[in-house]
């Protein structure tokens, strides 16, 4: 780690970058089974960490370590250069541990998170036969990496170009400002409903207390 004034932190400043992590999966094509896949495997899947719009994230992410299920050969996969992803075949879903390591200049510890590997379409009614398109499963999570009080060096790197651009409309990307706004509205509606419930229960409580009082 480079010592000296460069590792000095900038007070009261935070800088964040969006990332997405998740997996895509698709069942084997019956005619073109991967030659080296074990017989019980049914899907090909890819787990990844990347920028939400396919942009490069290696300027602040040094490496990503994926911890696969123990039954896989060499279950800890360390990916040290983009694209940070692992493609495998399998038959079952499991939790993948993901550790993100940052560039040396950041002088930060790694961040770990979990992703549940999805192979089968979800949110469908039972007994529904998924279409071909639905069989291509995607399970992607949007998140932001926040550097509180970044080092001056990291700050320098991060401000080379705007890295936090989020497209306006949904049609441009799944993760857009529109999505964000909708999400906020949805949660706000939820809060409103909960507040109504609270009011109802407060009234009830008051009534009960009044009965109890005398």
């Amino acid at each position: 780690m480079a010592p000296g004034p460069s590792s000095k932190r900038i007070k009261t400043l935070s800088i964040c970058r969006p990332i997405v992590y998740g997996n895509t999966a698709k069942p084997f094509d019956p005619e073109h089974r991967p030659p080296n896949a074990p017989s019980e495997h049914t899907h090909t899947w890819t787990v990844f960490v990347r920028g939400p719009y396919g942009e490069d994230v290696s300027y602040f992410i040094k490496k990503v370590v994926f911890k696969l299920h123990d039954t896989y050969n060499n279950s800890t996969r360390s990916i040290e250069s983009p694209p940070f992803e692992v493609t495998e075949t399998g038959w079952g879903e499991f939790e993948i541990g993901i550790k993100i390591f940052f560039v040396n200049e950041a002088n930060e510890k790694n961040v770990s998170l979990y992703h549940h590997l999805r192979l089968h379409p979800y949110g469908l009614p039972l007994n529904a036969v998924p279409t071909e398109e639905q069989k291509n499963v995607e399970s992607i999570q949007f998140d932001e990496v926040v550097f509180n009080e970044p080092t001056e060096q990291l700050f320098h790197i991060m401000t080379q170009k705007p890295g936090n651009m989020v497209p306006e409309l949904k049609t441009q990307s799944v993760f857009s400002k529109q999505t964000e706004r909708e999400e906020v509205v949805r949660i706000e509606n939820g809060i409103k409903k909960v507040r109504q419930e609270i009011e109802k229960y407060t009234k009830k409580l008051n009534e009960l207390q009044q009965i109890k009082g005398p």
Binding site: R9, T12, S14, I15, V111, D143, E144, N148
Partner: peptide, 24 residues
């Protein structure tokens, strides 16, 4: 707007240094 583009934010109070995921 530009600040948002860089993901920059200046806080009024002191913040604990370090990196974290927003969802955490």
């Amino acid at each position: 707007r530009e600040e948002a583009a860089f993901g920059l934010q200046v806080h009024a109070e002191k913040i604990t240094p370090g990196v974290f995921l927003r969802s955490s």
